[in-house]
Amino acid sequence: MGLFKKNPFGHYLVLKKWLIRIFGVLTHRRYRGFNELQIEGSEIIKNLPDTNVLFVSNHQTYFADVTAMFHVFNASLSGRVDSIKNVGYIWQPKMNIYYVAAKETMRAGLLARIMAYAGAITVERTWRAKGQEVNRQVNPNDTQNIGKALNDGWVITFPQGTTKPFKPIRKGTAHIIKNHKPIVIPIVIDGFRRSFDKKGLRIKKRGILQSFQIKEPLEFDYENESIEEIVEKLEYAIEQHSSFLKVIPAEEIQVMEDLNEKRRFGY
C-alpha cells in the first residue's frame, strides 16, 4: 500500500488502516471479555467477492453494531469461523468496508468524526433531523456515494434507519438493490441494546450474550420484483417484519419500547 494512496472518497488508506487497528484493539473486549459475541454463519464471508456486496441488518446502537461487524468480517477473512478469538486479525483489515450512517450522527463530536474516517458513507435522513420530524427529498449525492462504495467494496446498511425495533424499512435500500444488483447478505443481531447505551460507546451491562447471525445471500429478480416486494423480503430476512411481533411476548415489546424512551431522553 502506497503511503499516500487514497480510496474513492479521498481518505488516506494508511490512516484508515491505523484507525481500524486502534479501534479494533480498544473495542475487542466489548465482544469477547466484558460480554460474549455468539457468531453464526461467518463462513459465508470468505466466499464473497471483493466488491458489490451489501450487508443489511437490524440496528440496536449507533456504533457497537457496525464495530462488531468490522470484527466479525475481518476475523472471518483471516480464517476464524464464528469466532473473534485473538484480535491479531485486525492487523491487516479489509480496507474497502463501508457503512451507511446519518450525517448528523457522524458530525456529533470528535470521536464520531474520527470513526467516520474509518468508512462512513454519511447520508441525510429524509424523515428526521435534529430530533424533529422532517419531509425532504433524497439527496442524489448520497445515493451516488453508496453506489461508489459498492463499486469499491462492501457496504453495511441498516435499512430501518433507527435503533427502534420493528420500524419500517426505508425504500431507498430497495432502490439501491435494484439499481446496483449487489449480493445482499442479511445479518440479525441481538443483545447489543442490553449491553451498551444507545450510542454503543458505554458498556451498560456486563455478562450479556450478544448474538450475530449471518444468513445466506438473498435472491432477487432485479428486473421484475417491485420495490415493495424487495422491502418485504428485507423485513423478513432481518426479522423485522410485523409478523415477528406475534411470537414476541407483549411484555417484552413494552420493555424494549420503555428502554428506547429512557435512552432517547438520556441523550
Rank of each mutant, 00 (worst) to 15 (best):
N141F: 14
V66K: 09
A149N: 00
Y222S: 02
D65T: 07
G2F: 10
A64S: 15
S78E: 10
W154E: 00
K205R: 15
E251L: 07
A250F: 11
E216C: 11
L54D: 09
H71E: 03
K198Y: 13
Y222F: 15
Y62K: 03
R125P: 08
I214A: 10
L234I: 15
F55K: 04
V188F: 10
Y222W: 13
Y236W: 09
H59I: 10
I214P: 04
L15F: 15
A102G: 15
M1F: 13
N179R: 13
K233H: 05
G266L: 08
R113E: 13
V188L: 01
R125M: 09
K204G: 07
V81Q: 09
K17A: 02
Q60F: 11
K94T: 04
F9E: 01
E216I: 05
T105A: 09
M256I: 01
E43C: 09
K130A: 08
Y267T: 08
S78G: 03
K46G: 00
T162F: 12
Q137M: 06
S83K: 12
I114S: 01
R263D: 15
R107G: 01
T163L: 03
N145C: 10
T143R: 00
I84K: 06
K246L: 15
L54N: 06
N145M: 04
G266D: 09
